[in-house]
Computed example of a mutant assay.
Amino acid sequence: MQTITKQLLTASTLLMAIACGTGNNNLDKKKAELKQLKETHAKTAEDISKLEKEIMRLDPNAVPVEKPKLVVLTTLATAPFTHYIDLQGKIDAENISYVTPRGMGGQVKAIFVKQGDPVGKGKLLLKLDDAVIRQQIETAKTQLAYAKNLYQRQQNLWDQNIGTEVQLITAKNNVDQAERQVSILNEQLTMTNVYAEVSGIADEVNIKVGETFTGSPLNGIRIVNTSTLKTVAQVPENYLDRVKVGNLMQVTLPDIGKTYNTKVSVSGKLIDPNSRSFYVEGKMPSDKNISPNQIAKVRIEDYTVPDAITIPVNTLQNDEKGKFVLVAVNENGKMRARKRTVTTGELYGEMLEIHNGLKGGDVLITEGYQSLYDGQLITVSATGQ
């Protein structure tokens, strides 16, 4: 016992020297010394335990009664475990239409819609300047009437066997050309009326009377069809092989306090060089409370196990041999702490999946484990299930 006590005092002295930064040894040497001290300490604690047991057998009164440490225990059981990728996204519309003129556009004379108005397909939105075209139509109609008059005169002469057939055909062609010109101009006149090609909401109206309308997105009208909406988000590139079409997606809209379950309908394969992420989207159900550009909290399910063992991540510890936890084991009617080496899996939130080392029914020490050593006597404060 005296030798062991000296070893403990020597180990404690070396630990204090390292902690205080004494000496001029480099970092690697200090790490090596610390590792050796931990191994010595573990071996010493084990020797103490063995000697105490031997002494207890020879003289039960020679060793003082060991005082148990108060801990909190939780009995482990298998349960479903799911890992999610938490993202921030937004609501977007699948059908967005920018209104454009059928012709070259023109100066706006009247606007029949304002931002936020519901718009039905075929609704008149803008009236463009048509004064020049109307003048052209009047001129073309005059030319058509003149061509028809000449053709009628030529027809009358032909009926009297006067004139040639070429003259009659030429007169008829002039009438046809004049009629086509009137028809073209009338079609151009209709182009001064700008109609909605889709139904939806006039999301943007960035044009004013007197301005020239060409259909530019920066100077025009945008119609959003809110009947088909989707959630879009950017996923970090390290999840590229784990996010695929069909993955479950949970979308929460904080503004309205609603959560929707959908699936990934599009998963991009192109990495954005600036954000190092790729694009995903999921279709949203029809709901009047959902609007384009709403902020969405997105959770994509990328990993699930139906019967996993999970532990609070803060109970995981490390030593020179690897990762371990402390469990409570009943030995000869006494509860003792025992180290259990584990292999970890996925982490989500505060729960860590354990692949190997633990099983259902094991009793995990969830509080008071910080200063426990392997084999230490423990007593229960409370038992969690």
Rank of each mutant, 00 (worst) to 15 (best):
Q2S: 12
T40N: 13
E39P: 00
N156V: 08
L58T: 11
L157S: 05
V224K: 06
D203S: 15
L124D: 11
L316Q: 09
P80L: 05
F213C: 06
T344G: 00
R340L: 01
V209A: 03
Q177C: 03
I300S: 03
L76F: 14
S277P: 05
N193F: 07
V108S: 10
T343A: 07
N293S: 14
T310E: 04
I365N: 04
K67D: 12
V113I: 15
T228I: 14
N314D: 15
S275A: 09
K53D: 11
G120T: 15
D307A: 13
T44K: 02
K258G: 00
S286F: 12
V175S: 08
E211I: 10
G357T: 05
T78K: 12
E346I: 01
G163R: 09
A110L: 04
I201N: 13
Q36L: 12
S275M: 10
R276G: 03
D159M: 09
L248V: 05
N206A: 11
N225V: 03
R336Y: 01
K43C: 01
K90C: 00
V194K: 03
F81M: 03
T82C: 01
I162S: 10
R57I: 12
N95Q: 13
V235Y: 10
T100G: 02
K35P: 00
M1F: 04
V329H: 14
A17L: 02
I365G: 05
Y84R: 10
L37Q: 08
A382L: 07
